[in-house]
Amino acid sequence: MKQTEHLAQIAACFHCPDFEANLILGGAQYREYAHRAPVAFRGDVSAHLYLVLDGLASADLYGPDGQYARLVGYGAGELFGAYPTPVRHRADIVAEGSLSVLMMETAFISGLAQSHARIAQGISEFMARQLDLLLDRMAARIGLSANGRFYQALLSRADSDGWIKPLPVVSAMAVGVNTTRETASRALAHLLRRGIVKRHDHGLEIVSIRMLEDLVI
């Protein structure tokens, strides 16, 4: 069952047919990490590319005086690691809550991209979307309220039909927008009460994108 789900997630994230998705899955390894478990350490050589299936991978940095900063959080459907060649990790990568990923060797996924145009196109589009999302998060952190950042994150995760699949983990999203789980939970409850979003077993449906956009302040 998990293999079928992983295939569907790869096809959706890389925007590729099942044939190419199967090629990617063939070289991927499934990994699970408990809360605050290390995925990688700053300075280590990264020779893998990771696709987040569920949870949040946090890129943490500590200064010489012990000052802590979270550079970025990678949520479900996002990539982190090395591509197209190995690099050194710029920060510690740790699991924020339960984290599950598909791990692929950088050389393997780069080789597939060189020999399969659909995979190369999928990766380039994937990374372009993720860069836009990262810039949105940076802008939101500076200019929006905590609720506004959470609502913007929901909009960013939604597909063209207004669906967020699978159901987002509120605690992981809260970390991703630099707020508390309680604040994020109240913000989501507000949307549910007003009927702006609906919760389903398989995902979250944004009923009125315009009304949600109006709350991003």
Score class of each variant (00 low, 15 high):
140 A>W: 01
178 N>M: 09
124 S>K: 12
95 A>D: 09
113 A>M: 03
140 A>S: 14
137 R>C: 00
114 Q>E: 14
199 R>F: 00
135 L>Y: 06
116 H>E: 08
182 E>I: 10
61 L>G: 00
90 R>L: 11
59 A>N: 07
135 L>T: 07
187 A>M: 08
85 T>M: 13
160 S>K: 12
104 M>K: 04
168 P>I: 11
74 Y>I: 15
123 I>Q: 00
161 D>A: 14
131 L>C: 04
136 D>S: 00
186 R>Y: 12
152 Q>P: 00
163 W>C: 04
98 S>T: 09
147 N>C: 03
125 E>K: 13
112 L>T: 08
175 V>F: 12
107 A>N: 04
108 F>L: 06
140 A>K: 00
134 L>Q: 08
89 H>G: 02
74 Y>Q: 09
118 R>L: 15
75 G>C: 07
84 P>Y: 00
175 V>G: 12
93 I>R: 08
168 P>D: 06
117 A>M: 15
104 M>N: 04
161 D>R: 15
98 S>R: 12
74 Y>F: 15
172 A>V: 07
186 R>G: 03
134 L>N: 04
95 A>L: 09
92 D>Q: 09
110 S>R: 14
192 L>K: 13
59 A>P: 01
112 L>F: 01
73 G>Q: 07
120 A>R: 15
189 A>K: 14
195 G>N: 08
138 M>V: 08
61 L>D: 13
62 Y>A: 11
122 G>L: 06
89 H>E: 11
88 R>N: 12
184 A>L: 08
196 I>T: 15
146 A>F: 04
121 Q>N: 10
86 P>S: 10
61 L>E: 14
135 L>D: 06
100 S>F: 06
179 T>G: 05
195 G>Q: 12
193 R>M: 10
75 G>P: 03
188 L>Y: 04
115 S>T: 15
121 Q>I: 07
182 E>M: 11
95 A>V: 11
85 T>Y: 10
145 S>K: 07
168 P>A: 09
